[in-house]
Amino acid sequence: MSSLLEISDLHAEVDGTPILKGLSLTLGAGEVHAVMGPNGSGKSTLAQVLSGREDYEVTAGSIRFDGVDLLDMEPEERAIAGLFLGFQYPVEIPGVSNLNLLKAALNARAKARGEEEPAAATLLGRVREAAASLNISNEMLKRGVNEGFSGGEKKRNEILQMLVLEPRLAVLDETDSGLDIDAIRVVSQGINSLRDPQRSVLLITHFQRLLDHITPDRVHILVDGAIQASGGPELAQELEAEGYARYAPQPA
């Protein structure tokens, strides 16, 4: 009953190539889980399928978000329901300022929920506060979405959006890649500040280093499109020492 996200036996393919092959995962409200896996294991596909990317075709299985069938929902409906994806490669949208995007996103949410649109001053205050905590300058806020941002700036910008939009579930796809150690600390603080009994986080990562700063409740090992093992934070430590080799699929 308390599970926020319930993925069962998920199969998905891209251009006819099966990537996810029976992935199941349950995430409770207030929990932080990490999905770890080597390159090509299906990590990003999982993130894209959760966000509703059209190029990814779900061929079997189900995803329930707060008891509702997520696969039936459009990407924006998922966002409004409280799902947030921090993209691995955030796209640039020239001319659309970051502030403008945040305003439009909050207004869309308010409208869908029949609430008043947040006042401009409130919005600005919220954004500035979050931006300051992530070392994002006002000048960056005024620039086009991710326009000319460095890799690290893009990732921080994703976290900024997450903090302002206050999702119930944040799926962070390789948010740590391309970040130096200071940036990882800043980003981790941002993620940790979001933790509360109502919010959940799904960290998708290749390396264990982000988990030095954010202690997950559970760690799942994703290899060849399915979860091969699950356990506590210690699993990540083991992985760091031993690598993914032991989870490689056995020849049939």
């Binding site: 966000s51 990407p75 966002a79 995007l101 996103a105 979405v145």
Partner: peptide, 10 residues
């Protein structure tokens, strides 16, 4: 897709 995943309609 990016904008829709932030809650904006198509």
């Amino acid at each position: 897709h990016y904008l829709r995943s932030r809650g904006l309609g198509e």
